[in-house]
Design a protein around this nucleic acid. Sequence first.
DNA 1: TTGTAGGCGTTATCAC
DNA 2: GTGATAACGCCTACAA
Lengths: 343, 343
Amino acid sequence: MTGWRRRGNRALARVTIKDVSREAGVSIKTVSRVLNNEKYVGAETRARVAEVARRLNFRPSVAARALAGRRSFQIALVCDNPSPYYVYEMQTGIRDRCEAAGVRMIAQPYDRGSSALYADIEALIDATQIDGLILTPPVTDHDGVLALLADRAVPFVRVSPGGKLALSAATFIDNHRAAAEMTAHLISLGHRRIGFIAGHPDYAVSGQRTAGHRAALAAAGIEADPALIRQGNFDFASGAACTEALFALADPPTAIFAASDDMAAGALACAHRQGVAVPAALSIAGFDDTALAAVVWPPLTTVRQPVRALAYQAADLLLTGDPGTRELAFELVLRDSTAPPSR
Amino acid sequence: MTGWRRRGNRALARVTIKDVSREAGVSIKTVSRVLNNEKYVGAETRARVAEVARRLNFRPSVAARALAGRRSFQIALVCDNPSPYYVYEMQTGIRDRCEAAGVRMIAQPYDRGSSALYADIEALIDATQIDGLILTPPVTDHDGVLALLADRAVPFVRVSPGGKLALSAATFIDNHRAAAEMTAHLISLGHRRIGFIAGHPDYAVSGQRTAGHRAALAAAGIEADPALIRQGNFDFASGAACTEALFALADPPTAIFAASDDMAAGALACAHRQGVAVPAALSIAGFDDTALAAVVWPPLTTVRQPVRALAYQAADLLLTGDPGTRELAFELVLRDSTAPPSR
DNA sequence: TTGTAGGCGTTATCAC
DNA sequence: GTGATAACGCCTACAA
């Protein structure tokens, strides 16, 4: 019940800088200096002001700060991802970093392909005077949006961008290498015909993962059969549908590597439905290792992408103004060592 | 690239009310009136101002509005839920409603049991001058927070509150009846020994669902065996653990009803691990029917709770200031008609 | 090291 | 119906 003074009987009044300054016996500007950790404040004065502010439970008005100053103490996450787990991890990671900095996160989910995307982001910037943005694919590679942000001089960080790394700070894992290593793992088990379910074509990571898969096949001297590579779109249904198509081949694969866990789960469901034993007759690998991977049974072999850490790092880059890029380590989680069935 | 004027060569200047008023040949206040749909503006004037505002791509500053006026055009979602699917649906539903109203959503995830919860919400209110809050369990029933909100006179809406419906607007389904109907369904299949995995005790809905289950047993003249009711906490792991305990009973259940899909999935995983055939030897039912239910295999029988609709309605109540309560319909999704195995 | 004056962009109040 | 003018709470500049 602090942070507000009672005025007379009824009305509640906000505790302002003015109140703090009066109570501490200094000017408003001095309080402001202490608040923003500026230099040139006597140690004793600083301590006294801080104490009073704490005691009065003073909380600076975000609106007033945004209006008067250059910062709004708010950043936005612009995120479109079909996987709730991904979104959840992103938000949690960003929040964890923001909390320490006293910055608030505005969630700006958008619909992929929405024609309003550009306008929405423009409105977001103009209306809220956001301090910065964190973008996730596929908007990370939307030329119009990137130009807009440059024009408005709004700081932004991209997670898993498709390219143009010089354009902004970014965090990512080596998707190409991750996919290659997983494919190599399947090959090492003896698989030669490996089905691959690619991610949504709008996402740059899809191409990176597909390329990694292909590279590993080439490195092992296995000729890529185009029929084994199917176009999915990152969700459960497409994983199941692609798997059905793979099973219908005259010479079906002995292993399936899906570019996301949701699709891997779809593959698993399809296999069960068709009476194909997993992992006895079929080896399934996924990508992401969201909590979802722990839910499906039997456990899938997956590439674990540290989504929460990527998010945390992205927020860190944004808040510190670090223009750099950060590559994080992925991890292969090999829960399944099934060799291909002999025929 | 509109919404900003170029000044001289370089600097970008915000388009303000002043610009609009000058261009339209009216006073600032008149523009403000049009913006806020106030009365007493000539139809012709109104149209002209609106046109100019649109043409100049004018976007009022949230900060300035919050500072000068009573509204900040931002609402917050205070949500702690172990299920990413639930969080995702909540956010999406709220956003859908807010979009039409030109209001922004601030996501405020919190850790259940965090001692900072109260302070966090207090800080949120004081710092951002939020227009309102949407609460999800268990904070819906946190007396301290409820008192705080009343004291600050901040409008709020609760989703699935445990009681005290007069305290605020609210949206919910009839959890008691939903659980009772699912239990009745299992009984109708011939099950007499039904395991029940209860939700986290901090959530009021847990008690409601458990009570509904018990009521249905009583209505069918089945004596409740305390050993068949286990305490879970809404997550995958607890579902698996409780199921293991149920299997260890001398007289194990022929069906299991878990109070959430995550726990049902855990039950399923445990059954698979122990070689119990589902649904041949065991019938599993869940609650929520998030997308998760579609991922696990075989599909579970579940109570479908319309989370996104609950969220949308909650936002609607908040934005319209409607103090009422809204009960939404749940749905039983019966994918499984397994009768208990004969022994 | 500290304080004063002015303004950020909008809404509220009160005249006209 | 419409328009001056004063807040709103804080920060930036500049002065002391």
